[in-house]
């Protein structure tokens, strides 16, 4: 069974979200102790986006259903980061849209079936 094309889109979206979050980490850090929470939220979002992207990669050691759950936690982290720091509201809205797209892709039965079938033992 060939890898569904939608999974490649999911991988690209996850990597894009992770890279945007990485840039946000750089912007959030201003050398002060107070900026640590902003940096922490951005790091969390970045890690979750990359984890979701990893779930869509070939030979990912993750069950198909887990990817949707990780993407949902990622959207929750983006929401909390938005509420905590409204400095880059539009960037956070874009990240949220990317996260929702990840959930939609991960929830597709085709993706769940392929991921479970091609999981390394």
């Amino acid at each position: 069974m060939s890898r569904p094309k939608i999974m490649k889109a999911g991988l690209a979206i996850g990597l894009l979200g992770g890279i945007i979050s990485m840039i946000l980490v750089g912007y959030a850090w201003d050398g002060s102790f107070q900026s640590i929470t902003n940096v922490g939220f951005s790091l969390l979002v970045m890690a979750l986006f990359f984890a979701t992207a990893g779930g869509f990669s070939e030979g990912a050691n993750m069950s198909g259903k887990s990817v949707a759950i990780i993407a949902a936690v990622c959207v929750a982290a983006v929401l909390i980061a938005t509420v905590y720091n409204t400095q880059f509201l539009w960037v956070h809205i874009i990240l949220m849209a990317l996260g929702v797209a990840e959930i939609m892709i991960a929830s597709s039965s085709e993706v769940i079936y392929y991921t479970d079938a091609n999981r390394p033992a």
């Binding site: 259903k65 759950i69 949902a72 936690v73 959207v75 909390i80 939609m104 929830s107 769940i112």
Partner: peptide, 19 residues
């Protein structure tokens, strides 16, 4: 296998705990 609903549940619980 109703993953959209499962994702909504994961979103609600994790967002509340994080906040």
């Amino acid at each position: 296998g109703r993953m959209l609903n499962a994702a909504a549940a994961a979103f609600a619980v994790s967002a509340a705990l994080m906040a």
